[in-house]
């Protein structure tokens, strides 16, 4: 694995990654956990909205859109 940890925001469209850390607390964190976005789950950047933000991610078969404010707090380990 020639990659280092990056934020989810930096994950290019079409690439898959494994979640390392969800760096937020409280309601937001719970909401993401509810969606299955927990450390070690797979996530794939699927598409950008026409304005570039939010970005849609595939998590456990569902497509979830996140704003960069949220995705920048999530660190992931990109996979080939």
């Amino acid at each position: 694995m020639g990659y280092a940890e990056i934020t989810l925001t930096a994950l290019p469209i079409g690439q898959q990654a494994r979640v390392v850390n969800v760096g937020m607390q409280g309601l937001t964190r719970n909401r993401l956990l509810d969606l299955g976005l927990v450390p070690s789950s797979l996530v794939k950047a699927v598409r950008k909205s026409p304005g570039g933000d939010p970005v849609a991610y595939k998590v456990r078969g569902a497509i979830i859109a996140l704003r960069s404010e949220e995705s920048r707090l999530i660190t992931v380990w990109p996979l080939d």
């Binding site: 309601l27 937001t28 909401r31 993401l32 969606l35 939010p54 849609a56 569902a62 497509i63 979830i64 859109a65 996140l66 704003r67 404010e69 949220e70």
Partner: peptide, 10 residues
């Protein structure tokens, strides 16, 4: 500030 945003695209 704008709060968190999560939206499912079913």
């Amino acid at each position: 500030v704008p709060s968190t945003f999560t939206l499912e695209l079913p």
